[in-house]
Write a protein that binds this DNA or RNA. Structure first.
Lengths: 231, 231
DNA sequence: TCAAAAGTGTTACTGATACACCCATGG
DNA sequence: CCATGGGTGTATCAGTAACACTTTTGA
């Protein structure tokens, strides 16, 4: 049975590429669509921008409605405007990305009916996604990789207290290559924005590692100047 | 007399930040508007995207129609989506930028009636621009500065044959700081993508400098790997 | 006592910076 | 012959890369 779909003219939408890190793997947030077109497909969380909200606000609202997640710091990274990227009409989409600690407590739960579910999926072996979302994801992933070189974004993905090995394995997951342990530690510690805690890892069956915290105050003090060129 | 303006709903537009270099100064391309709102104001070349063209194509078309310039390699850099950025309705604009040799031969001449004129203006002492175009320009300028560090964009702005001093003064104009002559030359030549010509500068009243060409073939060979992370 | 990961220093290389004088040319 | 920019080398410093063994801990 063929479903007849409405058509429409110019519409803006937002799509979100949200990265998380869990069990040594980099993941992104996907939803299962509950609406035509691409009903039942997996997709990036995304929806249409309202008349009276800025795109930045729209991005936060849409992510919340589709996944229950709030108050992340999202940043736009690219706008996709091919003519036929949406089967029902002309939709230009602004893609945003953000990083977040994956936290077992926080339930992922769509507020609207547009998504059946929301869940984390490893960035490797991604399935086919709806629309041009695979391309959007790839572009976002490249941006993330680039930005890792000049911004301490890794700390958004880790728990508040973390070991240097966890930090390193996150870098390795994003950059997709092995790093030298001694050089990595030397370099990270030399920046001076890691605070060593009086605490150690617990519940591991080997020598427990020291825990560290990211000291955002020190970071902004050290890198004040470079922040201007950020956007 | 108050002019009554039509209102409209969602519209996409494109705005272009086009950089050129002339007489040791970095310049951008402005138009004088011939349409309400902001009639007679100076603005970035920009207009509305049609239903059936991709945003990349729209950018090329719009720039051509407003200035007569064609075939530049434009790249989007940011999308501006505040609710009230346009007085007549909701307009989200995708900003593009490009670099071009300023060439006395090539006349700047609007094809449509929307612009009265198009001309180069130094990036320093920019006047007030229509809409949020001052902000758009600033964001584009920051991007340019950033990109100069990892891409040979300077060569798009210079004549085909140029001296090392010209190249240096372009870098100085973009980065807005003085560079050391010896170090600059050493570094540029060490990359290996400058081809020394058998020719010298003419018509100067001091020792004539050697002319160089940018060797794009060598460049892409050397930096193949990094190009992937480009966008 | 074993398995598993934590933790630790030195050397070599590469790239960036700082710095000042003589040279060639046209007027 | 002078004013103007062209052209050149060296020493120091900072950051990166390569590389392997001992220590701690829980099971």
């Amino acid at each position: 049975m063929e479903v007849k779909l409405p058509t429409f003219n110019s519409v803006f939408s937002i799509d979100c590429v949200i990265f998380g890190f869990e069990a040594g793997e980099l993941k992104i947030l996907l939803i299962e669509r509950n609406e035509e077109p691409y009903k039942d497909w997996l997709a990036l969380p995304g929806y249409i921008v309202e008349q009276d909200e800025s795109i930045d606000n729209a991005a936060e609202r849409i992510l919340y409605e589709l996944t229950g997640l709030r108050d992340l710091h999202m940043q736009q990274f690219h706008t996709f405007g091919e003519v036929n990227r949406h089967p029902q009409g002309r939709v230009i989409t602004v893609a945003y990305y953000a990083l977040i600690r994956i936290n077992g407590q926080k339930e992922l739960k769509p507020i609207t009916q547009y998504a059946k579910s929301a869940f984390w999926h490893p960035v490797n072996e991604l399935p086919k996604l709806a629309f041009d979302h695979t391309e959007i994801f790839q572009t976002g992933f490249n941006k993330l990789r680039r930005r890792l070189n000049y911004q301490p974004i890794a700390f958004e993905l880790l728990p508040e207290k973390f070991t240097l090995t966890q930090l390193q394995s996150l870098y390795e997951a994003v950059l997709n290559k092995k790093l030298d342990k001694r050089n990595f530690r030397k370099k990270m510690l030399s920046y001076g924005f890691l605070k060593e805690l009086d605490e150690k890892q617990k519940g591991v069956s080997y020598r427990a590692a020291k825990l560290y915290k990211f000291d955002r105050r020190k970071y902004t003090k050290i890198f004040q100047n470079e922040l201007n060129l950020d956007s």
